[in-house]
Amino acid sequence: MTEARAAYYFYVVQCADNTFYGGYSTDVQARVATHNAGKGAKYTRQRLPVTLIYAEQFATQHEALSAEWHFKHQSRRAKEAFLAAHGAHWQR
């Protein structure tokens, strides 16, 4: 019997105030639902609703968390360039 491997994701949501929030999860859809229920990150609770605009799967938790860290430490312009280069669509 084969054991299922966990999936690790870096994701980006666009908040109602048009800001971006990058996060990590093993279940992106459930995490976005948690954000929209007002039980997610403190940052998103005041900026509801959020819309998923990008998600990327990684082989390890470390890789996904690293992608999240790098995204969060970029300027808005760099975040938009990253998202555009990866085919994400968001409201401007």
Score class of each variant (00 low, 15 high):
H70A: 07
E68S: 05
K72D: 15
H35M: 01
T51D: 07
H70N: 14
E63T: 09
R31I: 02
H35P: 06
Q61R: 12
K39A: 08
T51C: 06
S25H: 03
I53R: 00
T34C: 07
K72S: 12
A67T: 04
Y21Q: 01
H73Q: 10
K42F: 10
N36L: 01
Y43A: 10
G40L: 00
T44Y: 06
K72P: 01
A37D: 10
H35S: 00
Y43G: 01
E68M: 10
F20R: 02
E56M: 10
Q61M: 12
K42W: 14
A30T: 10
Q46N: 13
A37N: 15
R45L: 05
Q46R: 09
Y24P: 03
E63L: 15
Y54V: 01
F20N: 01
S66E: 14
A37M: 11
Y24W: 09
H62A: 15
Y24E: 02
D27V: 07
Y43R: 11
F58I: 08
G22I: 08
R47P: 03
A55V: 12
Q46D: 15
S25N: 02
W69A: 15
E63H: 11
A37L: 11
R45W: 01
T34E: 11
R31P: 04
F58D: 05
G38P: 01
N36F: 01
A67G: 08
E56C: 07
A33E: 06
Y21H: 12
Y24V: 05
A41L: 08
H73C: 11
E68L: 11
L48P: 07
A59K: 01
A37W: 09
V50T: 11
D27C: 09
K39H: 12
Y24H: 07
I53F: 00
Y54I: 03
R47E: 07
F20W: 03
Q46A: 14
A33K: 13
A55E: 15
F71Q: 02
V28D: 05
A59M: 05
H35Y: 09
Y24F: 14
T51A: 15
I53K: 07
A41F: 07
G38R: 05
Q57K: 10
L48D: 05
L65P: 04
Q61I: 11
F71Y: 12
A30H: 10
T60E: 08
N36Q: 09
I53V: 14
K72N: 14
H73R: 11
T34L: 10
R47Q: 11
L65I: 14
S66V: 12
F58M: 04
Y21E: 00
A33P: 00
L65W: 08
R31T: 06
F20M: 07
R45I: 01
Y21K: 09
K42H: 12
Q61D: 13
V50W: 00
F20Q: 00
E63C: 11
D27P: 04
G23H: 02
A67L: 03
Q46L: 09
V32K: 04
K42V: 12
S25T: 07
I53D: 05
G38A: 04
Q61P: 09
V28H: 05
G23N: 06
G40C: 04
Q61K: 14
R45E: 11
